[in-house]
Amino acid sequence: MNGAHHGVELEGVTRRFGRSTAVADVSFDVRQGEVLGLLGPNGAGKTTTMRMITGYLRPTSGTVRVNGADTAADPVGARRSIGYMPELPAAPPEMTVRSYLRFCARLRGVPRARLRPAVAGALGQAGLHDVGDQRIGTLSRGFRQRVALAQALVHDPPVLVLDEPTSGLDPRQVVETRELVTKLGRSRTVLLSSHLLSEVSQLCRRVVVLDHGKVLAVGDVASLSGGGTLEEAYLRLVRD
């Protein structure tokens, strides 16, 4: 094991739900400081893979290491390094944005003295300053997506796992979010999933292509597209 590895490593990870296999023998790694794209059609196993990284699901077999910590042996240590934005932007509707972020920060071990700046920082990064004292239930879908992003950032984690970060957003929000991800990727390890080729090619240097729970390809966007567009390469992979 490479103890100095500060990204995310998956080795032979398989997850079965009863008889069906959602993810089969997946291995790849997300290197420190890079933005890796998890690409694949709906039902390819992207969300299951991410849930195994974040510890929401346990792999049936194989190992996952986050920032050097094995999610099976040291689940809390592994989760401490992760900021996770699930596919559905879930947040308790009765709470205000600020109190929710405060709760998330406390839960993830941000010291009491650093709570206020941490919440303020997350609000700022996600562009939520104006709605900090509003109840989450009263916010539009786009703002709720930003709340989900803010809670992933509030404890300043080295690893970000973003499941479909731009789905359901209007074009202007999509642009803003992509800019934010690019900015975050400069100092953090980012794994994001998407079914949008254009998004992945725009944000990521490397991609993992997933279909039917199996890794079809891992590599640079440039080498995968092989001179043509990523679309052509992707369709070729998925069709086979």
């Binding site: 849930r51 974040t54 510890g55 929401y56 809390v76 240590g77 989760r79 401490r80 992760i82 996770y84 699930p86 559905l88 879930a90 947040a91 308790p92 509707p93 998330c104 839960l107 993830r108 071990g109 809670q151």
Partner: peptide, 12 residues
């Protein structure tokens, strides 16, 4: 609501 996922993926 989906918030349980965030709770269970927190370092707790």
């Amino acid at each position: 609501l989906g918030t349980l996922e965030l709770l269970l993926t927190s370092p707790v």
